[in-house]
């Protein structure tokens, strides 16, 4: 399927304060797009707009597959600081979302795929932060999404888990899906991302192919936001 996300002239104001200013770019099939920006740059607001949680003050977003709108349940998401329901077990949590998404995926198999099967009956509040993050991503996996939108998936997660999450998403991208990650962590971006976008104080500074960037994404980023 030919996927495309078109972000057209998005502005977002809270009162008089502009949070996003004239954001205009698109993302296509098989792109692993990492949105880089400091805290407060507007990443979360843009992600919330992409997930239809809030409306832009002006501009529009189109998320399409072969020219047709993609339904919300085909977008796998992880919100910033999202945590799974802490009194559930991982099995109950995934079962809840499987029923909501009317997914046919087997919960046990998803738990195995994310190396969480052994914790199947453990109360979620007893799990590590990394495991909770993985569980939230596993929840998105149940929808069999065409597009992944993840906001700060690596906050508070150890480096081994970060790479594990990247590998799962890389596999998804190789299957033709779009992966969008908003983060301020630069580790592994070079290894996994196909494109980066830089957001600075509400301004979108551009979309760049990772292959064309030199050795250090961090140096490139710092140069751009100067």
């Amino acid at each position: 399927m030919n996927l495309e996300i078109k972000i057209k002239k998005i502005f977002k104001y809270y009162g008089e304060k502009a949070i996003l200013k004239d954001i205009d770019f698109s993302i296509n099939s098989k792109e692993f797009f990492v949105l880089l920006g400091q805290n407060g740059s507007g990443k979360t607001t843009l992600i919330r707009i992409l997930l239809n949680l809030i409306k832009p003050s002006s501009g529009e977003i189109k998320i399409e597959g072969n020219g047709k709108n993609i339904p919300g349940n085909k977008i796998g998401f992880l919100l910033e600081d999202e945590m799974p329901f802490d009194y559930f077990t991982p099995y109950e949590y995934l079962k809840f979302f499987r029923n909501i998404y009317k997914s046919k995926k087997n919960v046990d198999e998803v738990l195995k795929e994310f190396n969480l099967y052994e914790e199947k009956k453990t109360k979620i509040f007893k799990l590590s932060k990394g495991m909770k993050k993985k569980l939230c991503i596993a929840k998105a996996f149940l929808t069999e999404p065409l597009i992944w939108i993840l906001d700060e998936p690596f906050d508070g997660v150890d480096i081994i888990m970060v790479e594990e999450i990247y590998k799962i998403l890389k596999k998804e991208r190789e299957e033709g899906k779009i992966v969008i990650i908003a983060t301020h962590h630069f580790e592994f971006v070079k290894n996994y991302a196909s494109h980066i976008g830089i957001l600075d104080r509400g301004n979108f500074l551009g979309k760049y192919e990772v292959e064309k960037i030199g050795d250090s994404i961090l140096d490139f980023y710092l140069e751009k936001i100067k």
């Binding site: 997930l51 239809n52 949680l53 919300g72 349940n73 998401f77 919100l79 600081d81 999202e82 945590m83 329901f85 802490d86 979302f97 909501i100 998404y101």
Partner: peptide, 12 residues
Amino acid sequence: VKKYFEVLMATG
């Protein structure tokens, strides 16, 4: 506060 509400909204 725990964002469960937001998660359910994002689910549709």
